[in-house]
Deep mutational scan, measured.
Amino acid sequence: KFNKERVIAIGEIMRLPNLNSLQVVAFINSLRDDPSQSANLLAEAKKLNDAQAP
């Protein structure tokens, strides 16, 4: 279950337009470290993406 959620979360994070490459890598590394947190990490990535919108 967590592996599928992690793959989906990674794909979504990679498509967030307002994150820089270091932020994307940090979120992906966090997902690798704890796949059970996929939903929480994706939500945090989306919040950061929205906050950094031009």
Rank of each mutant, 00 (worst) to 15 (best):
1 K>L: 08
1 K>N: 15
1 K>E: 15
1 K>R: 09
2 F>V: 10
2 F>G: 08
2 F>A: 11
2 F>W: 08
2 F>D: 05
2 F>L: 13
2 F>Q: 08
3 N>T: 06
3 N>L: 04
3 N>Y: 07
3 N>C: 15
4 K>H: 11
4 K>V: 06
4 K>A: 10
4 K>F: 03
5 E>K: 04
5 E>P: 03
5 E>V: 05
5 E>T: 04
5 E>Y: 09
6 R>N: 15
6 R>T: 15
6 R>S: 15
6 R>I: 15
7 V>K: 14
7 V>C: 14
7 V>A: 14
7 V>P: 04
8 I>A: 08
8 I>Q: 11
8 I>R: 13
8 I>P: 04
8 I>S: 03
8 I>M: 09
9 A>I: 07
9 A>T: 07
9 A>K: 04
9 A>N: 02
9 A>R: 03
10 I>F: 03
10 I>E: 15
10 I>D: 01
11 G>I: 10
11 G>Q: 14
11 G>Y: 14
11 G>R: 11
12 E>I: 15
12 E>P: 01
12 E>V: 13
13 I>K: 00
13 I>G: 00
13 I>A: 01
13 I>T: 01
13 I>M: 03
14 M>C: 11
14 M>H: 04
14 M>V: 06
15 R>Y: 04
15 R>H: 07
15 R>K: 14
15 R>C: 07
16 L>C: 02
16 L>V: 00
16 L>G: 01
16 L>S: 01
17 P>T: 08
17 P>S: 09
17 P>A: 08
17 P>M: 06
17 P>G: 06
18 N>D: 02
19 L>Y: 00
19 L>M: 02
19 L>E: 00
19 L>G: 01
19 L>K: 00
20 N>R: 07
20 N>D: 12
21 S>F: 13
21 S>N: 11
22 L>H: 14
22 L>I: 10
22 L>Q: 14
23 Q>W: 02
23 Q>E: 02
23 Q>L: 03
23 Q>H: 02
23 Q>N: 02
25 V>R: 11
25 V>M: 13
25 V>E: 10
25 V>I: 14
25 V>L: 11
26 A>D: 10
26 A>W: 09
27 F>L: 05
27 F>D: 00
27 F>K: 00
28 I>C: 05
28 I>H: 02
28 I>M: 10
28 I>D: 01
28 I>W: 05
28 I>K: 03
28 I>R: 02
29 N>K: 07
29 N>D: 09
29 N>G: 05
29 N>I: 09
29 N>P: 00
30 S>V: 13
30 S>E: 07
30 S>M: 14
30 S>G: 03
31 L>V: 09
31 L>I: 13
31 L>K: 00
31 L>P: 00
31 L>G: 01
31 L>T: 02
31 L>Y: 03
32 R>M: 15
32 R>I: 13
32 R>T: 15
32 R>P: 04
32 R>F: 15
32 R>G: 11
33 D>A: 13
33 D>N: 11
33 D>Q: 09
33 D>T: 14
34 D>G: 04
34 D>H: 14
34 D>R: 05
35 P>S: 07
35 P>E: 05
35 P>A: 13
36 S>A: 11
36 S>L: 08
36 S>I: 06
37 Q>G: 15
37 Q>V: 06
37 Q>S: 05
37 Q>Y: 05
38 S>W: 15
38 S>D: 04
38 S>P: 04
38 S>K: 03
39 A>P: 04
39 A>E: 09
40 N>T: 13
40 N>Y: 10
40 N>S: 13
40 N>L: 12
41 L>K: 10
43 A>W: 09
43 A>Q: 10
43 A>P: 01
43 A>E: 09
44 E>W: 11
44 E>N: 09
44 E>M: 13
44 E>S: 09
45 A>Q: 00
45 A>T: 00
45 A>E: 01
45 A>V: 02
45 A>G: 01
45 A>R: 00
45 A>N: 00
46 K>P: 01
46 K>L: 08
46 K>M: 07
46 K>I: 12
46 K>S: 04
47 K>R: 11
48 L>E: 02
48 L>N: 02
48 L>S: 02
49 N>V: 02
49 N>R: 00
49 N>D: 05
49 N>I: 02
49 N>S: 07
49 N>E: 01
50 D>W: 09
50 D>V: 09
50 D>A: 13
51 A>L: 10
51 A>M: 12
51 A>E: 10
52 Q>T: 04
52 Q>E: 02
52 Q>R: 05
52 Q>P: 02
53 A>P: 06
53 A>G: 12
53 A>K: 11
54 P>I: 11
54 P>F: 11
54 P>K: 08
